[in-house]
């Protein structure tokens, strides 16, 4: 008896984690650009950047928790196991990448 195939839509999850990373990068870069163009006070600008970063981290964390629980949706066979492992791994990597690439820069000079 064949195992139940993993639904095709689960493939999208492989891209989900890093899509959030991309969104974080684009949003933070945009906030930085707009903040500098409109000469926001540095404090306000940093606050907005930090909030945007935090929102993305929360989304990633929430996706991670959600997916870690959702392993039955990926079926019991080896295909599902691989995909589930890979999705969890991309989510974790994306989370780490978001922290590393977008966290430390917030300490630097904002508009020069």
């Amino acid at each position: 008896m064949r195992e139940r195939p993993v639904p095709s839509r689960q493939l999208w999850w492989l891209a989900a984690g890093f899509t959030v990373w991309c969104s974080a990068l684009v949003v933070l870069y945009a906030i930085q650009g707009i903040g500098c163009a409109f000469a926001w006070p540095t404090g306000t600008l940093r606050l907005w950047l930090a909030v945007a970063l935090l929102v993305h981290l929360i989304v990633l964390g929430w996706m991670w928790r959600d997916i870690a629980r959702a392993s039955p949706d990926f079926g019991s066979g080896p295909t599902g196991a691989l995909l589930h492992w890979a999705v969890v791994a991309t989510l974790i990597t994306a989370l780490v990448a978001t922290v590393i690439t977008l966290g430390p820069p917030l300490l630097l000079t904002a508009c020069i």
């Binding site: 933070l28 500098c36 690439t101 820069p105 904002a110 508009c111 020069i112």
Partner: peptide, 15 residues
């Protein structure tokens, strides 16, 4: 481009 924004891309290029 301001240093803060450059750092996003510098860090990305490193990792």
């Amino acid at each position: 481009i301001p240093h803060l924004a450059l750092a996003f891309f510098s860090l990305g290029s490193a990792i």
